[in-house]
Write a protein that binds this DNA or RNA. Structure first.
Lengths: 251, 251
DNA sequence: CGATAAGTTGAAACTCGTCAAGGTCCGTGG
DNA sequence: CCACGGACCTTGACGAGTTTCAACTTATCG
């Protein structure tokens, strides 16, 4: 029970009441007063796949919570080579605080719904409410951990291992089955083969070949090019090139 | 002038007076009181190359400021394949707040000197002093930007481009020449060929070949295997596979 | 239905890894 | 002082894995 609770304590904006960002996202760090203030300036959007939210080197004037769908973060080399440097799932916070210009492109990978706020409103609340900054630090640290983990995949895994690692990561973020920790999963791929190849540092042909190989080995089933079923997650993990938290063995 | 300023206002600990971490590192976010408190519990160390600071999956009970030298962050696969997922230079802060166990190995790449604090002391000050948390958030966001940038190098660049990109990055962090923004640079490589290959996702043989190629093309000079001179930084940049902040051209 | 985008499959080319030999540097000890 | 040993680095030849190029298939949508 905090000191700041007052007559607004139950005055949570209607929009926010059932919003995932309030439970698991950054809005969970806000007290009702701030939530009301933010909600006034917020706006909701729906975006189709391929639509760009933020362009590289462009000024950013809003932040968003990702309410549903998958967003990809990309970078380009000048000759057109592209790398997806991260995926974001609901209820992640989108936007790079304390920088005027973005250093990445942010683009809807699937249909996406957002709750956006003017940059100034968010930054004012960050100053007033240390809880929000703490939450942002925690999310940023988690994102950093994920990025470092993915660097191992990009730098040291083979093509088959990369594709298996990708499927495992997606399964963990998107599995909509009843039984979460059970040994099976089932989901729609949020990315095209070309996107997957840009995420893994491969070509779409190689991705395609490795997917058919996994299917031939009965590790996965694919329907309609997009819908994937994994009967045994542990079986899939064996194809990921064991991530050893353990030390390199003594000789 | 803050309320908490008191007779200790100019009582900055002697050790901290000339310390780089106080100017450009996280300690710059602390007021003298906290600085005194931390300095009491701090200890300084010198480490030789190859010494491990923090092991993967081990409990961490201290944080450190890196005062000099270079530290490498690594991850392993269970079969021994290794990836360096980041380098840290002075005056970076080392340690992952809010987690009991590390997910990476942290190891001295060169001779290194540290200023270490007990985990509890740092976390107490984080709670009391929002400035420190803000500083940590900023450093973490910068580290995330660097990690994402490096993912492009790992995923999409060729071996020659990777090696050139590595040299450029090192030059920017280690050049000790008088003229900072000038077109030339000069430094000692903080990593062995094997380390460089683990950083770039290559083999040491390939790294070696690309270095001799760059030398043959008069992009760099190498003395004593470790000391590198770059006469024209812009020339070196041309070998890095142009990082396009620009959009992919219209057809 | 035909058109377009996405995905699959095959064959050839090429980059980079693997394996092996030799070279350089440096500290130790005869 | 020089020989020896070991760690690190360089260079070459060969081969595996991935990309490239091209043809074909499948799904989607007017």
């Amino acid at each position: 029970m905090t000191v700041r609770q007052d007559i607004h304590s139950s005055g949570i904006p209607v929009l926010c009441l059932s919003c995932a960002a309030r439970h698991r996202g950054v809005c969970g760090a806000l007290d009702p007063n701030h939530l009301v203030g933010l909600a006034k300036t917020s706006s909701r959007h729906k975006l189709e796949p391929g639509v760009e939210l933020i362009a590289d080197a462009e000024a950013v004037d809003s932040y968003s919570n990702l309410l549903s769908g998958v967003v990809k973060l990309t970078k380009c080399l000048s000759d057109g080579r592209q790398q997806i440097v991260g995926l974001r799932f609901a209820p992640d916070f989108l936007g790079r605080p304390f920088k005027v210009k973005s250093t990445i492109n942010v683009e809807a990978a699937t249909s996406v719904s957002l709750c956006s706020f003017p940059k100034a409103a968010v930054e004012r609340i960050i100053k007033e409410s240390p809880g929000l900054e703490h939450r942002l630090l925690k999310q940023t640290l988690d994102e950093l951990d994920e990025a470092l983990e993915w660097m191992v995949t990009l730098g040291r895994k083979t093509a088959p291992e990369k594709v298996a690692s990708f499927l495992l990561m997606i399964a963990r973020n998107m599995d909509s089955s009843i039984d979460p920790a059970a040994g099976s999963a089932c989901f729609d791929l949020p990315l095209t083969r070309a996107d997957i190849s840009d995420f893994l540092g491969l070509t779409n042909e190689t991705v395609s070949r490795q997917l058919t190989r996994l299917r031939a080995d009965d590790v996965i089933r694919i329907e309609n090019k997009r819908h994937v079923t994994v009967d045994s997650m542990s079986r899939l993990e064996q194809h990921c090139g064991g991530r050893g938290a353990r030390q390199p063995a003594f000789e």
